[in-house]
Design a protein around this nucleic acid. Sequence first.
DNA 1: AATCCGCACAACCGCGCAATC
DNA 2: GGATTGCGCGGTTGTGCGGAT
Length: 376
Amino acid sequence: MGRAPCCDKANVKRGPWSPEEDVKLKTYIEEYGTGGNWIALPHKIGLKRCGKSCRLRWLNYLRPNIKHGGFSEEEDSLICNLYISIGSRWSVIAAQLPGRTDNDIKNYWNTRLKKKLLGRRKDSQSRRGSSNQEQSKVKKDAMDSAGNTSSQSLSASAVERMQLYIQLQGLNTPLSFYNNPAIWPKFIHPLGDHGNFQTHQSQNQHLPTDDPHLHQIPIQTTTPEPLPDMPIPSNQIDGGKTSNTAQEFDVNSLNGFPSESNCTILTNGEMNDNFGSAAARLQEELSELFYGDNDGNLKQVQVCQQQQQEKLTINQDIDCSKGIESAGYDNMNISWWANNDISQKSSSTSWDSNAIDHLPTESIFQDFNWGSMSYI
DNA sequence: AATCCGCACAACCGCGCAATC
DNA sequence: GGATTGCGCGGTTGTGCGGAT
């Protein structure tokens, strides 16, 4: 059975809002509120608009304290890092940017910020003597090999986020999110006696490397570079779906990786019979993302360069926002941000819960929500 | 001057989810 | 418990504008 339309499309006005319509809507809502029913609202005030259209207009343009344009560097960094962390959950990202709407941020990201950030990568790619077209083809081929359409798009998103993460790490500038506590979301700050992220070493102490739920994918990497004091992507505890089957694949084919040190990718989540091919696809994507050239690109991939204990974790749970409570993701994630031991579940109580009201914090705290990375 | 093209942004569309009936 | 309804969200499309040709 099909879904009933929210309004009679033949009798509603569409397109840009006139100033008169804006005044009508704004005046009414400021005086009476929405009444909790957007569908009925336009009829009450004599607007020939769909209720959803009224809602959108109010939320994005008419409600008080809306800011448009003029994104600051701090906002850029925050948007970028939250995108890397949680993906395109614009409403969550918008919640961290007072006065910004999800639509605004989404548009800003798609039209400007993404190009601005990924543009740096293009520059370095051109230095490597590889055309963008060639890169695109490689990426497309990798996507094509990933199976169905859904996987392709999700994978593309994951790739994009990973590329951005690499970019950010490579930047290592004072404006870098990781190096700039001033631009961290306010609810992150309670972590800090020291106000800084923990080192890789301390993080690694807490990684459940013997956890049978985690699957180690050894990767041969190049000579490690000294790491800045940055966090490594956290792992996320298996959401109840377990397997003891260790998965390994040869990654010697990764572009330009001399076999000098190891990098381990931990994966968790459901491991099924398809994991081998999933890992292969991951390998393909990694081989595109991790370069071994000499002009600095590879150095940005510090996560996978630092000796054997460096770990990039990938959660293959499709929807990480679900099952967080039972899976204990929050503890893991907080441990990442807050330098707490995984076992210190109670540590979350020290966080300012008021500051994250209405926010799906379980996702915010994931530095890498690879849940959208569908390899299965 | 006309046309094309790319960009930015506003608005729409359709889906998932939760509340309600 | 299933159907209906409304809300919220993310993805996509439409449109206007400015610069390039």
